[in-house]
Design a protein around this nucleic acid. Structure first.
Lengths: 199, 199
DNA sequence: GTCTATACTTGGATAGAC
DNA sequence: GTCTATCCAAGTATAGAC
């Protein structure tokens, strides 16, 4: 297994890298992680299969970088909104928006990648690192929102963080085989009113 | 793709089927779904690779039956306890026990299998069917426990069901790359006291 | 930086002996 | 029902032309 390969990043090189990443995500979305081989990915993006190895060195590396890429977009997209949130209800809304945007754009290809490797493996480690910032961001936001609220008495911030992040993962995983978006919508709107009532 | 193959189930045949299923689960656990090939599974279980095809016809079929098998065990193990639950707090405890037993026995190999295939695929459909009974069981139990409680005002039973099941999936997925069991323990004990307070 | 061609490995699956 | 041998497809990866 070769590590990450990064050539001089010329303009067209970057564009191609991006095309390949898009094709990888699209393929995982359509065929599942089990169906995402170099050849199927290349067919999806309509480029030569060898290109993938030139730019990323291996499939694992490509999937990992695709995960990172998609995740960074989400982070950038949501970071300011998390900073701006001022109540638990805001955070619930944000979580829902995150879910919608995730499922809409990637049909939760991310959770498939996350779930595919065992924890101890090298890939598993790196997946973990990609996900960690979310936890920190949510936790910071949550502490700020709940500061002074009586709500922390019944549910400490770190538990709430872990619960919210896990719930989001679970809902996304669920959405992979239960095409009923209404259930999620309904859940989050119930959570939202609960948050309103309780805080 | 060939369908399920079921020969006359002699005693030793059944035992072998079981050995193969165990090996499949063990392999997914250790190598992840991406590392679960016919050959690696056979090596894990120390049996001939061809045997797998004789008994199950294909890898997909084997993984699906492994999922079903492990899931049935859980269902049998927990069904009576879900029937016996009489409060929201009981249900939270049950969910936690389910998590522990799942992670302990399979290190969440199940969620890996669940996440590996796309929703629309044949495998995805069947995975969905395997999971559905949980939803029904939890929902029945929940309605019974919350009957007459004021809690349903802030959180309807069907939303709570979906939330609880999703949370469990998410926590199990999380446990694949975050080896911190204490976080889960802490979350569920917080949920438990919340359930006590609120119902 | 991209494509074609190709080497080589692994994986899925079957046939036939035992 | 299980094992050995084997076929073939698919997969990963590299070399070299353009």
């Amino acid at each position: 297994m070769t590590g990450a390969i990064r050539r001089k990043t010329s303009k067209s090189g970057l564009e191609t890298r991006n095309r390949i990443i898009q094709a990888a995500l699209e393929t995982v979305r359509r065929e599942g992680l089990v169906g995402a081989s170099a050849r199927t990915i290349a067919r999806t993006g309509d480029f030569n299969q060898a290109l993938l190895f030139y730019h990323f060195g291996s499939i694992e590396e490509l999937l990992l970088e695709s995960l990172t890429w998609a995740n960074n977009i989400r982070m950038e997209q949501f970071a300011s909104r998390f900073e701006a949130a001022s109540s638990l209800a805001d955070l619930v809304d944000l979580a829902y928006d995150l879910y919608v945007s995730e499922v809409h754009d990637y049909q939760s290809a991310l959770v498939a990648i996350v779930a595919g490797w065992p924890a101890g493996s090298e890939v598993g480690q790196r997946v973990m690192e990609v996900l960690r910032p979310w936890d920190e961001m949510v936790q910071r936001s949550l502490r700020r929102c709940l500061d002074g609220s009586a709500f922390v008495q019944i549910m400490p911030a770190h538990d709430l963080t872990f619960g919210l992040v896990s719930l989001l993962l679970g809902v996304e995983l669920n959405s992979r085989f239960d095409r009923n978006e209404d259930r999620t919508k309904s859940l989050f709107s119930a959570l939202r009113s609960a948050a309103d009532t309780l805080s």
